[in-house]
Design a protein around this nucleic acid. Sequence first.
DNA 1: AATCTTTATTGCAATATTGCAATATTAAAT
DNA 2: ATTTAATATTGCAATATTGCAATAAAGATT
Lengths: 109, 109
Amino acid sequence: MGASKTEYFSAKQNEIAAIAKAIGHPARVAILEYLVKVDACICGDIVNELPLAQPTVSQHLRELKNAGLIKGNIEGNAICYCIDEKAIEKLKKYFDGISNKLLKKNSCC
Amino acid sequence: MGASKTEYFSAKQNEIAAIAKAIGHPARVAILEYLVKVDACICGDIVNELPLAQPTVSQHLRELKNAGLIKGNIEGNAICYCIDEKAIEKLKKYFDGISNKLLKKNSCC
DNA sequence: AATCTTTATTGCAATATTGCAATATTAAAT
DNA sequence: ATTTAATATTGCAATATTGCAATAAAGATT
């Protein structure tokens, strides 16, 4: 025991959880913010931006990619990563939905 | 080593990461959705809604509470949990901000 | 071809998370 | 005061995550 019982929950619940989980680490938040900040999506220097070793950054990038938050293009021997807006839109819509539903209620706590 | 190097990142980055992390488990997504669904924020029956044991649900509730996503009132011997809209608003604003910044750029990947 | 640059992978240690049975706590009901 | 009901805490096992050194892979440069 001890593993997440993901199979007991809906696909949508698991999808939102997976995206949120990927954002749930400050290094990955920092990576996303860096990708938003730079105009071009030149990427190798993410390592220089962060106080983490290259393999660690590479792993965080993989997790963001698995969650659909970023996408990458191979350009020569470098890789150009950038944010995949679709995942951001999914989250936006999800929280907008929650927010709208909450407005229709009288908060009781 | 292996612990998160949270001290290397900004307070805001850590805050967003902490909220996202709390949402990053399907059981906690399911709890949030249940709290949105029920009109009143009667809470004991969250345990009946989920395929998890009572201590497990209690722990998930504590994590949601620590992240500021829910708040709870003691009502007799029961506890009334409900969503804290402030945390939802924070996330909404954060992703709106990212989304707006992305619109001003030509996506290159 | 040999080297450099960039990124990914592997293997490992440290730590964190998940889930639950057992137990504790707290307040209501009898 | 005892019992019941609701929730929290503790302690533990199973699993996952985090971070990095070492190494690999793959294209560019010389």
